[in-house]
Every structure is written in C-alpha cells, then in structure tokens.
Amino acid sequence: MDAQELKALMQASAEDAKIYVQEKHHIQLAGDLASLAQVDEVLASLHADQQIKPHSAELLFTLCNIMGAYIGEVFIQQVGGAWQSNNIDQTAPYMAVQFGDKEFPFASVCYHKITNNNTISLQDYVNQAKQNAMQ
C-alpha cells in the first residue's frame, strides 16, 4: 500500500469512528483537540464493558483501529505528520503517525486503555505527543 492509499484508508477509518461514536454513544466528534476528551469518555465506556464481558478480538481490533485513526487524523491536522505502516514484526504490523523521527501508535494506546488501564488519557497522550513532536 502506497502512502496515498494509506492516507485515504486512515481518513476513511477516522470517519468510521465518528459514525460509530455518534450511533453508539450519541456523541458528535468535531475533529479537534477538544474532542479527544470525548474519545476518552467513549474508551472509558468500552473499558467498563470489557470488564463485564470481554469484547471479541475482531471488535477490539476494529474499534482500536478506527479510534486510533480518528486520533491520528486530529494529530496530523493540528501538529503534522503522516501515516506509516510499521511491518518490522510481520506477525503484528501496525499503523502509526510518523512526525520527524518520532512515531505515535494511537491505536495501540486505545487498545491498552480499553483492555488494561482506564487511567490512560488519550487527550493527555496526544498533548504529550504534540510536545514531543515539537522538540
């Protein structure tokens, strides 16, 4: 997949996240940094659901990827960068936003918030990533 195809895929995935959040959580994401607080609310809800009845691996994969795409698109619009496919480990490839020499795997952070640690704040993570990107 070339860079343009990857960009289009991630933009479409970010739109899927907006639709999912609107339909399932009745929240309209605005595509800005402030909306990341709403993303944290959605992920906290998914974390609570995960504790009661674990999500299927397929659902987790999809949710983490679309939410990660949304967060990444907000980051790219506000800070810069571009989507990169990391295939170093062929058994676990992933998408991340590359900015300079830094890589931000937003979908992985979503996964950890949903499955392991609800105290993770994606809003804080993006703010820290923004600061790191500017150094």
Score class of each variant (00 low, 15 high):
V74L: 08
G100I: 06
L59H: 10
Q78C: 11
Y125T: 02
I76C: 07
Y94Q: 08
N132Q: 13
L43Q: 03
Q38K: 14
D89P: 05
H25S: 02
Q123G: 09
N87Q: 15
D2H: 10
H55W: 03
N118T: 08
A129S: 07
H55V: 05
T91V: 12
S121K: 02
I120P: 00
A129M: 01
Q131F: 06
S56C: 11
S35I: 01
D49G: 05
L60I: 10
Y70N: 05
K53C: 03
W83K: 11
V39Q: 02
D101T: 09
D32L: 04
T91R: 08
G100P: 03
W83G: 13
F106R: 00
E5H: 09
L122W: 01
D49V: 03
L36C: 11
C64H: 13
F99Y: 08
A37T: 13
A14I: 07
N118W: 05
T119W: 12
Y20K: 04
A37L: 15
E103P: 06
S13G: 13
E41R: 14
A12K: 08
N87D: 14
I120S: 01
F99P: 06
Q123Y: 02
V126H: 00
I27A: 06
S121D: 02
T91G: 10
F75Q: 00
Q51H: 00
C64N: 14
L6E: 10
G31N: 10
D40E: 09
L36Y: 08
K24S: 05
A96F: 09
N118Y: 07
D101V: 08
L29N: 11
I52T: 14
D101G: 11
N127F: 14
F106N: 01
H55C: 03
K18T: 08
D49L: 07
F104Q: 09
P105C: 02
A57N: 12
D101E: 09
H25M: 03
V97L: 07
Q50L: 15
N116K: 12
V39T: 04
I19H: 09
Q84R: 15
F75A: 00
K130I: 14
G100H: 04
D124G: 09
S35F: 02
Q4L: 14
G81E: 01
K113M: 09
D101S: 10
D40H: 02
S121P: 02
S35Q: 00
A82G: 10
A44I: 05
D40K: 00
Q123T: 01
N118I: 10
L29E: 08
Y111N: 12
H25G: 02
L9N: 09
V39H: 02
S85G: 15
I120E: 01
H25N: 06
A92D: 15
Y20I: 05
V79G: 03
N127I: 12
